[in-house]
Write a protein that binds this DNA or RNA. Sequence first.
DNA 1: GCTTTCATGTGACATATATCACAAAGCTAT
DNA 2: ATAGCTTTGTGATATATGTCACATGAAAGC
Lengths: 190, 190
Amino acid sequence: MNKTEIKELVKSIFPHIENVALQHILSSANYIELAKGTELIRAGERHRYFYLILRGSVKTYYLKESKQICSWFAFENHIVATLTTIAGDKPSSETIELLEDSAFVQFETKSIKNLAESNLSASHFMTELITEHATFLEERLYLLQFMSSKERYYALIERAPEVLQKVSLTDIASFLGISRETLSRIRSLK
Amino acid sequence: MNKTEIKELVKSIFPHIENVALQHILSSANYIELAKGTELIRAGERHRYFYLILRGSVKTYYLKESKQICSWFAFENHIVATLTTIAGDKPSSETIELLEDSAFVQFETKSIKNLAESNLSASHFMTELITEHATFLEERLYLLQFMSSKERYYALIERAPEVLQKVSLTDIASFLGISRETLSRIRSLK
DNA sequence: GCTTTCATGTGACATATATCACAAAGCTAT
DNA sequence: ATAGCTTTGTGATATATGTCACATGAAAGC
């Protein structure tokens, strides 16, 4: 995948982005391929990059008493980042790990943030990125607070059926906030 | 409270804001006082304003089967808004209601959003506002997904003890995602 | 092809929480 | 002060979910 193709892709995902900003962002962008199990971002560490998934999938998780508790999964054409990395400059509290061999465009966070200091279009890009993330968080919060585990499971397979294809039931259960066994029983109901 | 005082207050809460942007934002700002029970923002409606609490408190809730389920409470010096109102221009899914007689600075959302289109400092202001909201959501999500109801209760009174002073246990229970009775039992444990 | 390992399903039981019913205490208005 | 309303506490019971143990089946490595 060459720079022109990357450019077209980023443009299609963020249609509002201006050419100057786009050029700047792409100057720090690289195409990379990584193997299943690789940790893109590791909890407790600062990170210089965020990613756009071209092919493959990742899971994001916290560690609680050395058990992985998933907070989300991402697939093709989605941005992979943590809020602490993008917005603050603090160590990530989550780990992001490849579920399968995958390909990404890697962006340098600093480069975009620097540009956003002086460039309006880049600042809008940041706002859009964070707004998208916040909207997603709000939806997930709503599900966790107001829906039963059954409802959350059905909402998940409706909203993101690809999760069921690519993610283990252990990870899905931790994401839904229930035990593996309970998920198994919900699934066997119909 | 006059414009100069409002200006100083907004400046102290958002120290990075530029003078041009500040002037523009303040031009649409008004001081208002409202009575307990007033709905600042009503679920299902679009809203032109967001607010800064000068004195008093509010609760934010969803309706589920005609029962109020609180999603947050806010007190002095905090911004009151919903993401759908600030970021999108969609009807709010939450209602925001005064817990007591309160005083606010009312800002016109459109005015700030318009300015952010062309003014860098205002755009940064928007980014900051939404980032703050997202950070808050992420923390709440973490508590809901990873902590037991006891832990969530203790986390709440540690992080925001004023909630206990001003909010009914019914509302706190709905916020924690548990029944009123369960909260009552947690409280009686020690 | 066989063995090992891992993911998933299921039963038995313990625990946490919800629900319903009612009592007690605190506020509010007259 | 009194009556009525709201908030909070608590007991009894039902339900949902977690935990532990083990079985089954699929995938991976030799």
